[in-house]
Simulated assay, not measured.
Amino acid sequence: MTNPEKHLESAPKDTVRSSWVHRFAPAATVPYLQLMRADRPIGTWLLLWPCLWSIALASHWQYWRPENWEFYLPHISYLILFSIGAYVMRGAGCVVNDLADIKFDAQVERTRERPLPSGRVSVKQALLFLGGLCLLGLLILLQFNVMVVKLGVLSLTLVVTYPFMKRITYWPQFFLGLTFNWGALMGWAAVTGGLEWPSIILYIGGIFWTLGYDTIYAHQDKEDDALIGVKSTALKLGKSTPAWLIIFYGITAVLFTIAGGMTGLGLGFYVGIMAATVHLLWQIWSLEMDNTERCLKLFKSNRDFGAIIFASIIAGHYF
């Protein structure tokens, strides 16, 4: 068993200090687990939920019949494979991001103790680790149909280019939305073998959801970002952020409702969407843009929003 106190002495400030990484992982693996953010699972949830939503929606779209509704379940094997894939590829994305941001992370108090800027993992070691994660991700991807494989390969373009967007635009959160919600297309394609409008609308709605939650997250670093020349929607929108969140989250709720309606979901779905919308309104109401702890709490609460949407889709089938 590892010594958590020893690891926490050099751990990044944004680590989850109660994580299993610090309590149980062998000492030699801790820097690599921190590099792939295994100690911070919220990113995996945010990447995973669009996958699970689309699998559940597509399962209803393809298999629902009045006479066999009681036998409905989303594809369990797909849910498991996408969960593992999201964990692995979110880790790979974090490695790519940290390789691109070594110099920037070294200048930000919250990130300067991450494995790469602190020197606990070398660039060469990070590249080898990235290769291993990508290989594992490929093995998972090959379990699906050709359409999913094509979409998975296309997603690599987004994964590689996203980390550089903060250098050239104040809207890197939009490009994160393109990347993190790609699973809405892949999950649908896994079930149906193609893409239909509900999956595309779900994908677009997810982009606006990401614009909202990652703008909240970016308010943690806005002072450091301004000093080192990194751009974000937090800097762009400033004090008008709450008004923009109403727009982002409002579009999210509308598009998710349309996607569910197009697949024929019942009343239970709409009740759930109302609950999810209340959750988003709570985020806006509770936002304190200069309170980093509050921003982080609201950002992490989007895991619960994702769970509400997933439960709403299931409820929309049965009720």
Rank of each mutant, 00 (worst) to 15 (best):
I207P: 07
S232F: 05
L227G: 00
I228E: 03
I251G: 10
Y203I: 04
V254F: 14
D221M: 06
D224I: 06
D224T: 04
I216H: 12
A234T: 06
A234R: 05
D214E: 11
A234Y: 09
S199P: 09
G238I: 05
L202Q: 11
Y213I: 03
L245N: 01
Y213Q: 06
I204K: 04
I246A: 04
Y217W: 12
I201R: 05
G205F: 05
I200C: 01
T241V: 13
I204A: 10
I201G: 02
T241H: 02
P242C: 07
I251L: 15
V254K: 03
I201S: 06
I200P: 01
L235G: 14
F248E: 08
D214H: 11
K222M: 12
I251D: 04
L245P: 05
K222Q: 15
K231C: 00
P242H: 06
K231T: 01
F248Y: 15
Y249V: 02
W244D: 00
Y249L: 02
A218T: 12
L202M: 14
K239D: 14
D225L: 05
D225I: 07
F248R: 01
I201W: 03
L235T: 13
I246L: 08
F248L: 01
L235A: 14
V254P: 05
D224E: 15
I251C: 10
S240D: 15
K222R: 15
G238P: 02
I228K: 05
A234V: 08
T241L: 05
D224L: 04
A253N: 13
K236Q: 14
T233C: 15
W209G: 03
I207F: 10
L235Q: 15
D225Q: 06
I216E: 11
D214F: 11
Y217C: 10
